[in-house]
Design a protein around this nucleic acid. Structure first.
Lengths: 243, 243
DNA sequence: GCCGGCAAGATTGTATACAATCCTTTCTCC
DNA sequence: GGAGAAAGGATTGTATACAATCTTGCCGGC
């Protein structure tokens, strides 16, 4: 298929920096609200600010960073409403993906999902960062197998941002996904049962959202604004906007 | 509501160039496959290549431009498969948006949609570019009223790319949307009838896709590869990939 | 006559320098 | 003592220059 693949030709420096920052954010090495000064990043990677700028711009396009003119970039801080929107949309899209895949899944597809789950189980008790990443990649893989490239891109996007939510509102070190639930979903796919696959996926994502959205304040607040936002709702102040 | 609004502070040059190029593409002044040389664009806008670069990068993130290392940028040329994926996803997301909005639409919401449709009708026989844009914006507005910011962003994305598809595969100057169908959808929203709204939206998008995907070769082919792709399937050559 | 290599031109990738803007601190005045 | 203004520092926005890469046209050999 004339895919848009074959990029490992020679990744440009901007792409390399982008990938590195992205991984750092997804694996929660960089926490929401952490500042991303061009100069410091440029020194860290041994490149010029130009390439860092490009990387940050792409990060913003993915919703992982927040850029404000003349005020620098920081790892995106999502409001509770945004976080709920993201999980809401994950339910919508991933239920759709599961439904479609249940209608058309080949044994090869299921085998790929199985082997991925095996990798998840191996890492379950090990490295937290890798475990988080693998759990997310299961969902991305499932969306990929559903066959719609746009759907794949959106799910990948949402899964990445879910890491942000988990970092900000979730209990530290809690696994994002239950591996057991992944197995059940694959079983439904193998049984070619779209309704069951959809139900399991929806329930799974409900659980994930419940674990991620504990409505707790951010564990470590590195920015005053984030804290005050928690108190700004219904406050006695006259302001109606936090712009 | 603490929206992400309030950007008209002072748009940076890169944002301005990005907006201009985006409009040019959406209004089909720039056709798929048209090259976008940094130098020429920089001269046109009276800025440096740096800002053009940033604008092009953002365009790529939106799927409107295609950047290949050392080979420059061009307006994205979508394959037929990609075009179908996009309309497939539009059905999925916009049916969802219509369903949700039908459950919660206020009279103010419906009024906004009405006035937008009125604008569409005014422009229907007038400027083609503006008509195309307005037809798309109806769908974006509906998604916005559905209340999920992520959904809004995705629909806006897909609507923009639909312009690309129409430019590449559709009949020239054909209106993308029937205004009549928009009215019917709003009627269903006002009646608080989610099932009917969903059905109408699905049918409407089927029509839009049918008009946009005529399976014709691009009217004016400016790039050889696009033509040869039409003939490369099942050819007698031994190659198995067009990478 | 056709295929390979090679050089010139064009275009992008990257680095650096300067200008503009924002935040912080401090000073002055009330 | 507190509020406002201004200066300083830090950071980003933009322009330009140079290096790397790709494409194109030409030439020699088979």
């Amino acid at each position: 298929m004339p895919d848009t693949a074959a990029p490992p030709a020679k990744p440009t420096r901007a792409q390399a920096v982008h990938a590195a920052l992205r991984r750092a954010i997804v694996e929660q090495a960089l926490m929401p609200g952490d500042r991303l000064p061009e100069d410091a990043i440029a020194r860290s990677f041994g490149v010029s600010r130009t390439v860092v700028r490009a990387a940050l711009a792409q990060l913003q396009a993915e919703g992982l960073a927040q850029l404000r003119a003349h005020r620098g970039a920081e790892v995106a801080r999502l409001s509770l409403a945004e976080a709920q929107d993201i999980f809401d949309m994950r339910r919508c899209l991933e239920v759709e993906a599961a439904t479609r895949l249940a209608r058309q899944a080949s044994e090869a597809d299921c085998a790929r999902l199985d082997s991925h789950i095996a990798a998840e189980e191996l890492e379950a008790a090990g490295d937290t960062a890798r475990s988080i990443r693998l759990a997310g990649e299961f969902h991305v893989l499932l969306a990929e197998l559903a066959g719609n490239h746009v759907l794949l891109g959106y799910v990948a996007d949402l899964v990445s941002r879910s890491s942000l939510i988990l970092a900000q509102y979730g209990r530290p070190h809690s696994p994002e996904c239950g591996v057991r639930e992944h197995r059940d979903i694959v079983a439904a796919l193998r049984a070619r049962d779209p309704a069951r696959a959809a139900t399991l996926m929806r329930r799974h994502l409900d659980d994930v959202a419940a674990r991620a959205l504990l409505h707790e304040p951010p564990p470590r607040a590195r920015d005053l604004g984030a804290i005050l936002d928690q108190y700004s709702t219904g406050a006695t102040l006259g302001r109606d906007d936090v712009a």
